[in-house]
Design a protein around this nucleic acid. Structure first.
Lengths: 196, 196
DNA sequence: TCAATACTGAACACTGTGTTCGGAAATATT
DNA sequence: AATATTTCCGAACACAGTGTTCAGTATTGA
């Protein structure tokens, strides 16, 4: 009935591989990591690897999709009621990044990791677009294209996150969110007024 | 006396290699370009390549440093008098990008090209920091760290540039600069007031 | 116990890297 | 023009990493 054990086994192997890659990414840049490195650390055979993943990049993506998903959820459901003066709360993101420091560092640090950043940026951008659109009354059109604003906000979030890491987290998540709001909201509010 | 010919010859070879790389980057991502590809396109021998550059990345950087330099100059000397309501004019940048479209596309498009973006961002960030500091009266301290603001502004500039490319340049350079000002300046001005 | 499924690891072909070196070609010097 | 110097050429080589194959082993489920 519950043939979960077989599946768990498969999952376990994949899990080991992901963990090995993540672990290695904390020590060296993604580009310089070898499939053999991963194999050694995970203690997994070569052919086993290739029976699960087409190549290194597929492994990377598979591991990162989970993280992205949880990040997106974190941002989209901040557990706070909507606020006309707050586009989105980035505090949960910074908090998440603080808790899972190593992981985020691995993500932000690497070179071939930009897929990741692009992906987050895309999701986040879309989410922000929706949020912005909901602010508009019908037949209103903002001075700046909504998709551009989404792109803008998403890139700022990630840019602040990167700065925060590169400078060893000199502020608390709440402070970082406050900075974000302070930098971004005035321009957004200004631009959302149809005839400024 | 004028032994320029020898130097020109060397320069010519290097130039051919750079051009070949740039040309290839317009067609495929940097990562997938082979040294042999470059050699073939430049019609240069293998050992000659390695007598000039340590590896592919060094060639990339050598070619890009020039571009970065000219971009930085463009931004730092916009030929416009300083303006208390304008942190920097990005119009020259967008204009430059329009004129040298292929090149910029190659720069923004690639994968391993992030060195480039990082470099520009660093220079630009520093320049903006200086500009911001000049706005402050002595013993004033802004609510948000100056370096963070520099990082923020630089990342927005590059982010807008990228959006502009990805969406086939739907606006004029002047319009893009206007959008930049509109999004960024309110938050900056707000944050520069020492006690808001 | 038997069959199915998942893992192993050695061997292999292949692609790309960076080095070496004898000789050719271009350039500079006299 | 003859010679010396510098630069370039390209084949050959050793090396590292990729992805595949396959016969054999270990695990699991009935």
């Amino acid at each position: 009935m519950d043939h979960g054990k077989t599946d768990r086994r498969v999952t376990r192997t994949r899990h080991l591989l992901r963990e090995a890659l993540m672990s290695l990414m904390r020590e060296q840049r993604y580009d310089s990591i070898t499939v053999q490195n991963i194999l050694d650390r995970a203690d997994i055979g070569r052919s086993t690897f290739y029976s699960h993943y087409r190549d290194k990049e597929e492994l990377l993506i598979s591991g990162l999709d989970d993280i992205i998903h949880s990040l997106i959820l974190t941002l989209e459901n901040p557990g706070v009621q909507p606020d006309q003066h707050k586009l989105l709360s980035t505090e949960p993101l910074f908090k998440h990044a603080q808790d899972e420091f190593q992981l985020h560092k691995a993500i932000m640090g690497g070179h071939g990791i930009n897929l990741m950043v692009q992906k987050i940026q895309k999701h986040l951008g879309r989410h922000i677009e929706d949020e912005l659109r909901s602010w508009l009354k019908e037949d209103e059109a903002p001075a700046i294209p909504i998709p551009l604003m989404g792109h803008y906000v998403a890139s700022v979030v990630l840019s602040l996150l990167r700065w925060w890491f590169d400078n060893n987290k000199p502020h608390s998540p709440a402070q970082m969110d406050a900075i974000f709001q302070q930098l971004v909201m005035p321009g957004i509010l200004e631009s959302m007024r149809p005839k400024g």
